[in-house]
Each structure stands twice: as C-alpha cells, then as structure tokens.
Design a protein around this nucleic acid. Structure first.
Lengths: 336, 336
DNA sequence: ATGAAAGCGCTAACAG
DNA sequence: CTGTTAGCGCTTTCAT
C-alpha cells in the first residue's frame, strides 16, 4: 500500500502542497471552494497525513510523555486517566511509559521520550536519589513536572499531596479511636512519599503520644504481596500494635488478607489504614480507612504547569502540595 | 537550549554526518578510532538524537500503538504490561491509548496512531459493530491485531480466550454445587465478549439443566457500580437465583457489595462468579470464583503476530482462542 | 571505511 | 488568497 502524500492530494486538487496544508490544518485562510476541493481530493485518495513529517517541520509533537512506576497500581492509572483527560482539552496526546519501579528502565524511558521529541514530561520518579540524574537530564532539555513523588536535587515543578498533613489526619483519627501503639508498613524504596509519610508518622505520633516501635517499621515494596508478608511478620513477633498504618492501599489490602489468614480480626484485634483511596479499598473485608488523594486535581495542575512551561516566559518552578482528606471505613472501627 | 544535531557532532569530530550516523547506530562498519571519537564528541556536546527525523527518513517508528477500552480495568492493564514487556524484547515501544469505551474516541485514537506512523496496532475494540469501520480503516493501512474482543466484518488477526469454553467451566462447576437457576449480569455493549459469554451461558446451562430467566439477564456496563445496581435489582425482584454469573470481575465485585448491602449472604444465599481473575478478585468478601485469562500469553501471541506482519510475506490472518481456567474461591462454596 | 548529496513529507517564510 | 522555495535532522544510496 503506497502511502498517499500531500503532493498526491495537491496534484489531484490542482493546487500547491502549501495550499493543501493550509486547507487541511486551517492555519491560514483559504477560499471555501478550494478547501472543499482539497477535502474532497484528500477523502477520495484516502489521505491521512504524516504526523512524523509534520512534527519534524514544526518541531512540535503535541504529545506529552508520562512516566509512572507502575500501571498495575490503580492510583497511578487514575492519575494517568486524569492527565490524559486534561491533555485532551489542550489538544495533546499522552505517551505513557511504565518504569516498573526500576531506575534503569526509567532512565531509558526518559531517553526515549526526549529522542521522540515529546513536548513535555510528567513523571512520578521511582527513587529519591537514584532517579535524580535521569530526571535532571530530561528536565534540562524539556519542560518537566514531577507528580506525587519527587527526587531531591532537581529544580522542577512538583504537584502532589501534603504527606505530612495526611499522616496527621490518620494519626488524629487513630488517637481518637484509642490507639496507643502503631506499626508502619511501607516500601524500602527511598522516595519522597515513603520518607515524608514516615517522618509525618513520627512527628504526629509523638505529638499524640502514640508509640511506634522501630522493630515494627517494616519496609518492603508497594504491593499486596508485601502487605501480606508484613502482616505475617507482625503476627509472628507479637504483641500486635493497636494499629497498622500502611503507606499505600495495596500494602493495606495485603495486610488485611494476612490478618484474615492468621485469624486476626480487623478492626477487633487491630486497626488498619491505607493511603490513596483506590476503588478497591471500599470493597475489601473490612472496607479500608484510607487517605483520599485528589488525583484529578493533581493531574490538572501538572498539565497546567506544563502548558505554561511550553509558552514563552519560563516562570519560577512551583511546588504545589494539595490537601488530602480522610475516608473513614470499617477497618478502623465503625464504618459509618 | 539550542538542540544539538548530528551536524554539530560531525563538525566537532571532524567527520561527515553520515559517519556519525553510522558510528552511533552501528548500521555499517566504521573504524574503531572514529567510533570512539564520535562517541566522545556526542557525549561532550550532550547529543541525544532526533527520533522524529530518524523515523521520517526510515519510515519506521519502532513503536506499536495499543488501544484498550479502559485503563482503569486491571484486566487491561495486565494485558498492557504484558504487551509492553513482549515488545521490549523486540526493541519496540508501546504507545498506549484508552478509548474510554467510546467508539468515537476510539476512532480518533486510531486516526492519531496511523498519523503518527506507528508500525502496528494492537486493539481491543469497544463495540462489535460500531467499531468496525475505524478498525477496518486502520487495518487497511497498518498491521493490526485484535485482542480479547473483536469486531465483526474485519479480516484481521485475533487473539483471545475461548469464551464458550470458559462458560462451560463455570456452568459445570455451578451445576456441581447444586445450582438449578442462574442470573447473568453483563454489559449492554454489544461486543464479542458479551455476546459469546451470553451464548455460551445459554448453551451450557441448557446442557446442564440450569434455568436462566430472561428477566434475570441484566445488561449494563463493565463496572463495579453496575454490579452493585444489578444486585439491588435482583434483590428487588425476588426470588433470587441460585447463582449470579457475571461477565467480568468488576461487575462481580459490585454484585458482592450489593448483596452485602442488602443482607444477602454469599455463598449462603446465592453463589457469585466473575471473569478475568484480576488481582483484587482474591481479596473481596468473599473471595471470588472466576475464570483466569492467560493475558501474558495473549499479549505474547499478539506481539508475535504483529512482528510477523511487519516482515515480508503477509501470511493468512489467524484466530487464536486460548484455553481459560477456572479459579474456585469462596464465593461459590468452600474456597479450598 | 568515508564523504557528498539526495531526499523522507511536511510547513513556514517570502513573494506576489 | 495562493504558489515557490527552503529546509526540519536524519539515513542512505552512490561514489570514491
């Protein structure tokens, strides 16, 4: 199938290629009759344009790259959907990449995106320090916004949730339920979310007189399997804490499953909290108390910052920490 | 930031642009010293190549487009992850698009992918007939493989699961549990999955003497919310069937929730089955009996077919129906 | 093994 | 409003 080019259309419509380009894109005024003729010719020949050639010439792809640690995590897919939606309004496409929580793969994805000349990048970096070099490199050649997590040592836009405030909400709620001791289950991965959530926990539990045993700070990864395993570890080394605070919902769902398997009743024997408010957190046994992140707003802000960076005057880099909210369900007592 | 081009590198290394291209891509032999010098210059200048220009010249993008109805559905994200993995082995990128279950948006995504000159397309079409025109159009200009669902009237490759066999597995299992009457909750959307699962249900329930009341065939959409709603409808118009067979896990999770809300015990009062075996189906209350789809294998086969279509001799179009397997959990009786 | 030169298909000046 | 022309940055003949 020999591709139909703008020249074929021009010949067929008996005009120049420039006119075809203008008629089809509407970039400059073209007489109605000519537009109609060009449209007809294009239709007839099955012309569909070559975005690559156009991108080369305009040095714009109208595409934004997005790199997330995992697309299996519903929190990130929700973020991606919101971002795609926001971009569509601005007439841009989303090129989605998963870094699979691997800084090496992440660096490779960034190289690809830069090579493909995307107009900007939205990234939730895997690691607080190991991702720095690649993110800095990319930020040096393209507008870049970090979302949710961020790396240290790169001056770029960031949009996320206020992790410290979120742990404040959790700690306040748990203290209100009479919690005096708590465990924390999170990811080994050194990244901003992990660190800010842990330091938030430390700060707020101290403030409220909740004891956090260092041996009950369990670090693994953001997954259901690790949550299950962590629950088994906690059960094995009793006494159980009053509450298990998890750094995300996947971990918390795993903890719930691990507790059930060990015959531990939630919330009877121990309270459990999550983070993110993924759809399935409302369906677990018991439904999970968690922190809701305004992903729609996070995505919208990220796109807005990127749009602005595409314009002329590079403004200063912003750091936007949005307010989280607590969703109380049965895993910390009465659900309603 | 003025972009560094191959010419800058060539000047710096005192060679021609052709040599730089060859040295960097390794397409043709270049003396080791020159390669080293070119590499050094590229490094020094921070050269990172222009994939767009390269793609225009080679008329290859080394990118495959993938269109799925939703990236919020874990079944599709699993499929996407597997596809990305398989493509990476072949040195290709994945350009992911969500059609949001909207044939119009789907058509637009396909146009974009064709315009962007992807090398091939993997699609799970939204609708059995409304997607036909766009899929046919795309299949006419690019190698295209349908996965999971397919449209009628387009001759292309297809890889999916044997839906009829899957409903056989479910029906056999339920009959073994003493089920005599069943409801079916699915999507209104006319697509191959919906239709084949319903006709499979009809065939196998007839074979096993399970009665399916036409008024208990409820069609809505593939979502948790619809499952919840459907459960309420079933409860409202008692008597309840012995079992509720759902066309996917999201619907089934919603049905479980709806039953719980109405005080209906699963599996005590009614049995429930899902389809897809998404990760969360193991964590619901109760855990869900469901059909496992071999998405890894589906993705691998799809990529293999695409790879072959990129080669010279266009072979005949294949239809590969892989064998499903039943995962029995507590929602249909004893879980173990 | 290397270089010169010709485009890939398109759009943005620049004329008219 | 329309045509002519000159590339965008790269790869690939075709020479040497």
């Amino acid at each position: 199938m020999p591709r139909v080019t703008i020249r074929d259309v021009a010949r067929h419509a008996r005009v120049s290629t420039a006119t075809v380009s203008r008629a089809l894109s509407g970039a400059r005024p073209v007489s109605p009759e000519v537009v109609a003729q060009v449209r007809r010719s294009a239709e007839e020949l099955g012309y569909s344009g070559n975005g690559i050639a156009s991108a080369l010439r305009r040095s714009r792809t109208d595409t934004v790259g997005m790199v997330v640690p995992s697309i299996a995590n519903p929190f990130f897919t929700a973020l991606v959907e919101s971002a795609e939606h926001a971009l569509q309004e601005a007439g841009q496409q989303l090129f989605l990449c998963s870094s699979r929580s691997d800084p090496g793969l992440e660096a490779q994805r960034l190289r690809t995106l830069v090579a493909r000349q995307v107009d900007g990048i939205v990234i939730s970096p895997v690691h607080g320090t190991e991702s720095t070099a690649a993110v800095a490199w990319a930020a040096g050649r393209l507008p870049l916004v970090q979302v949710d997590r961020y790396v240290t040592g790169v001056d770029s836009h960031w949009v996320g949730v206020d992790d410290d405030a979120a742990l404040g909400l959790i700690a306040d709620h748990l203290a209100g339920q009479g919690v005096r001791t708590a465990a924390f289950v999170s990811s080994r991965l050194t990244n901003s979310s992990t660190e800010l959530r842990l330091s938030g926990l430390r700060r707020h539990s101290a403030r409220l007189g909740i004891a956090v045993d260092e041996r009950q700070i369990l670090l693994g990864e953001y997954s259901i399997a690790w949550g299950r395993e962590a629950a088994a570890l906690l059960v094995e080394h009793r006494p159980l804490p009053d509450a298990v605070i998890c750094a995300d919902d996947l971990i918390a769902l795993g903890v719930l499953e691990g507790c059930a398997a060990a015959g531990i009743d939630v919330p009877g024997d121990v309270l459990v909290t999550g983070f993110d408010d993924i759809p399935f957190s409302a369906l677990s046994a018991p439904p999970l108390t968690t922190v809701h992140q305004p992903q729609e707003q996070i995505a919208a802000e990220a796109v807005r910052l990127l749009q602005r960076a595409l314009g002329p005057g590079e403004g200063p880099h912003e750091r936007i920490a949005l307010a989280p909210s607590l969703v109380v369900r049965a895993s910390t007592g009465r659900g309603d």
